[in-house]
Design a protein around this nucleic acid. Structure first.
Lengths: 336, 336
DNA sequence: GGCTTTTCTGAAAACGTTTACATGACGGCC
DNA sequence: GGCCGTCATGTAAACGTTTTCAGAAAAGCC
């Protein structure tokens, strides 16, 4: 038997309209009365019934967050960024993580409908058709989707630029025969990183590439490392498209008696916390994931507040090269 | 202008009552009519307005999750466990992470009120008074709170048992002078781990303890490691109350020229993914965090469905010792 | 075929808010 | 002092569902 606005009105000796106005800070209620109402509401521990409120205001003050099967630091940082930004705006977040396929994603999106004022989506399965099919009339902001649809807002991290910087660094160290362990084909992150890698190579004479397929898991990195170890003409350096694969590769190389960075240089992407604790510590590319989340939420909130506005630009967050031990100049290590 | 139940009713040539019944699977509507209604609803892309529904059913089908400032794998695993269990039951989860103090936690809890059917809480700030003060009439399940209140449901991980097992292992290796790097005093996790450590020591003749204060951060572990390195009578082994501190300690020891495990054994707690990539790989204690989340959600859902039931038992999830290189037997390494 | 019982359907109330509109009080102006 | 604005307040409709209750249709029975 929860206390409603009527109870507050009766107890305070005013109408429900006045209570509503006082509580929502409308300026058309006299100071003294407002104070009295607020006092009564507090005493009665009145808390507005959200459902009733959003039934009439058509706002839920909640936004949905749809994520794929993410792990560890990436996931928690993303949520943290979103959560902080949301809290600052008085919004709640409805999280649904780890959907495995497009059908699941669609079902989740469907279920969120009507519960949220907008959605934040990161998923390898969304494209323009998917969105128009499953999201009717709900503002959306995409994260790292690689969708070049001018009608949808998207936030990205600079995968291409980061990969380019890492590769350029390897080249600058004098390496020329460079291998890449790719991410799962078809995903935006993976494709862009490969693209950046190739851009960097193209800029240097005599540089050659070796492509090894990976899927962002440690296992795939390990397999790639074994493949590299078995090569007769071994590359000088390896760029793994994420840190987990770099770790797998590092272990495989070590197992094969190949030293990093003495025998081969290695760089990753993401700067996961482990990166700085490996031996050797891992050169990698850092991106502020929490910022990605926070900015995505800001854009979404903005769009929700003025839905008419057409500006659906795509923002890209910078990536920063972090140089560590794993790709020290070969010359420095020939004797190490 | 979203499509409502009335639109469906008009289009299908029936009353809203029938539509409602058909959609909710009540068995009092004729087969042929039900099929027709469902077909129309689908064609119109009708999706029920949650607010209206929960206004009358007094159910939101959502549960709140209140978490402290957690990082990395712990956070993501916890959410994953909760999310999976919630999805299986058709529940949505409203997440609020990283609250920094009791006031923030209270405000968040307040804001969730009326939006959720129950809450899952993990927070160092909650006690019986806090709960009764800020949660009126909302079912709650605590995670790892160390609250021995028979009226509230709680799920724990076996901090004590895990710490005891790790310490016992160190002792079994022949170590006797054992240091502990503690967690922040006053928190359940930290206190229980210290307790388990002491229980293990008490069971062995001639064992002695050295207590170093930590706060679960890598920095505090590093400081403790420096302190240990500076001791004239150095311990044989160190039990760090979590893996991050173990890492900090490991680095400090290495900086001081002390080898693990040759010169000193080291064990941690949590089995974070980094643990198996350190050199030496870290002996630690593993707990299934996703299971903690999933079970907590199950208990909550259960309680929501029959609120009368008084059984508020506290469940404890097992912790498992994972032996790795960091505490190999001293004898094996004297020559290494 | 009329009666009773059962099955299905529809009208309307209820949920707790917000807000458009109406009303009343009050003060200023002539 | 009567008239007119202005301001504060209250009344009631509206939001989109579910569900109770009563009534209609169908079915069974003699």
């Amino acid at each position: 038997m929860a206390v409603t606005i009527k109870d507050v009105a009766r107890e305070a000796g005013v109408s429900v309209a006045s209570v509503s106005r006082a509580l929502n800070g409308h300026d058309t209620v006299r100071q003294s009365k407002r104070r009295h109402i607020l006092e009564v509401a507090q005493r009665l521990r009145y808390v507005p019934h959200m459902a009733a409120r959003s039934l009439i205001t058509r706002r839920t003050q909640a936004i949905g967050v749809l994520l794929p099967d993410l792990h560890g630091e990436f996931f928690s940082e993303l949520i943290r960024g979103i959560d902080l930004a949301a809290r600052a705006r008085g919004l709640h977040i409805l999280v649904s993580s780890s959907h495995g396929d497009a059908t699941e994603a669609a079902a989740t999106l469907q279920a969120m409908q009507g519960r949220v004022d907008g959605v934040l989506v990161m998923s390898p399965f969304v494209d323009s058709r998917f969105l128009s099919e499953h999201l009717h009339d709900v503002p959306v902001v995409l994260m790292n989707a690689g969708l070049d649809d001018p009608s949808v807002i998207e936030l990205r991290i600079d995968n291409r630029g980061g990969a380019q910087a890492a590769t350029a660094h390897l080249l600058a160290q004098g390496h020329r025969r460079i291998a890449i362990i790719t991410g799962p084909g078809g995903t935006f992150d993976a494709d862009q990183r490969l693209h950046g890698f190739r851009q960097a190579l193209a800029a240097v004479n005599g540089a050659s590439e070796t492509v090894l397929a990976g899927d962002f898991t440690e296992q795939s990195g390990h397999a790639a490392g074994q493949a590299i170890a078995a090569m007769t003409a071994r590359p000088d350096a390896v760029f793994a498209c994420n840190d987990m694969m770099a770790i797998g590769c590092l272990i495989a190389l070590r197992e094969a008696g190949i030293e990093v960075p003495a025998d081969i240089a290695l760089a990753g992407f993401d700067d996961i916390p482990i990166a700085r604790y490996l031996s050797p510590t891992l050169t990698t590319v850092r991106v502020s994931i929490s910022q990605l989340g926070a900015q995505a939420l800001e854009r979404l909130a903005e769009r929700i507040n003025n839905p008419e506005q057409s500006g659906a630009r795509t923002d890209t967050l910078p990536a920063e090269l972090v140089v560590r031990e794993s790709c020290r100049r070969p010359a420095d290590n020939r004797n190490g």
